[in-house]
Amino acid sequence: MHEMGIALQIVDIATASIPPNLGDVRVAKVNLKVGKLAAVVPDSLRFCFSVATKDTPLDGAELVIEELPVLARCKECSTQWTITNPVFQCQTCNSGSLEILSGRELDIESIEIAEEDKNDSG
């Protein structure tokens, strides 16, 4: 539901990440990592991103979303597994004391700058 706010934040961070010495360039791609536990719907985010990028150096850029599984490790017996159902309990020893290793991400990994094609952006 807050995908637009997130899209605007992505545009801000990506724009600020363009090295100043590159001048007037166009961002072709933003590579994003989204954990399955993050309260973000990738399709909604892509739609919001396409709107949020209008009239910015990211206009027409592709938002590449890598979805990361929810990976847990039991603090008692060190079993490591991927959580696919909303059951946060160790399958080996039933302990509920676990560490979430991945799944909460909402990170911009990188941006990709288009080469010499800044005039044909859409």
Binding site: Q9, I13, S17, S110, E115
Partner: peptide
């Protein structure tokens, strides 16, 4: 990158602000 774009590492949490 292979596609001819230049990749710039960012590695930032979107909600870090």
């Amino acid at each position: 990158q292979k596609s001819g774009t230049r990749e710039i590492k960012v590695v930032r949490r979107v909600l870090d602000v």
